[in-house]
Amino acid sequence: MRPWIDRARFGAGMNLQQQERRSARIFLVSMCVFLALILGFPTLANIWFSFNEVTFHNLTGDGFIGFRNYRIALSDPRLWDAVGYSIKFAVICTVFEVGFALLLVFALHPLLLRRPWLTAILMIPMMVSPALMGVMYRLILNEFVGIVPGYLEKLGFTLNFLSLKYIQFTVIAIEVLQWTPFAFLILLTARQSLPYDLEEAAAIDGATGTRFNVLVVLPLIAPAIIIVSFIRFIDSFRVFDHIFVLTGGGPGNSTTSLSIYIYKIFFKQNDLGPAVALSMTLLVATLALLYFGLKLAVRRDPA
């Protein structure tokens, strides 16, 4: 069978490191072109909209209005309520998701080495669309037709997960249940990449079990923990689907995340310009956060 890259021709006159860099560039460039095509147009359109007076009746805008949309958007006090809610939601979800994922990695790593197919089962929640997750829980937790309140009632408990008292807990729990598998997958991969020799050497030095996990594994997979924490924080910060399906952002605006807020001012208030200006601000903030996260986690080889 003919290899798809002719190494002799492709890497002529290059050392191994140069060949690897060239391969990496080819793969990266093709991915960047794909992303530019898929994401580039909406991003450019959004930049245009955010500096224009646009309405549903006039989507091309009446002309450049500078930063007015940004000023209007940032001066609304409801924005800061939504930002506050999103930050709280994201921090709590990230802590629980990464924490549970770490515990699962420590507990299940030996089992998953022997039976790797079990990982697929643990990934199932992640494969369900978040909106569908919201619809599912709307049914499962309903006081009259839901399975969970039904069984709890048989056991003598009356617990209404969608009541005002528990709604914050419920929306966070759904997010954690759905996305802990993602954090688990990343951390499991990092754990499985550690050489077995290390475990043997640590055992000889007397570090086994919890001691080994805390003193050896944890520092070594720290970059993966940082990266997965940043990714989960960003993703939870942008939460929309299951909250919108379950509560519509309410009651009042008590579960209105930044994404729901942007949706509302776009579709319900018809303030297209400020809504797009906010989404651009969110995009820049997200990219900055990811950049610093990567910088913190990935140390480049000086060579």
Binding site: R138, E143, F161, L162, S163, T247
Partner: peptide, 12 residues
Amino acid sequence: TPADSLSYEYAE
């Protein structure tokens, strides 16, 4: 009214 009425719409 049920405690979770705050999440109720037509179907519920």
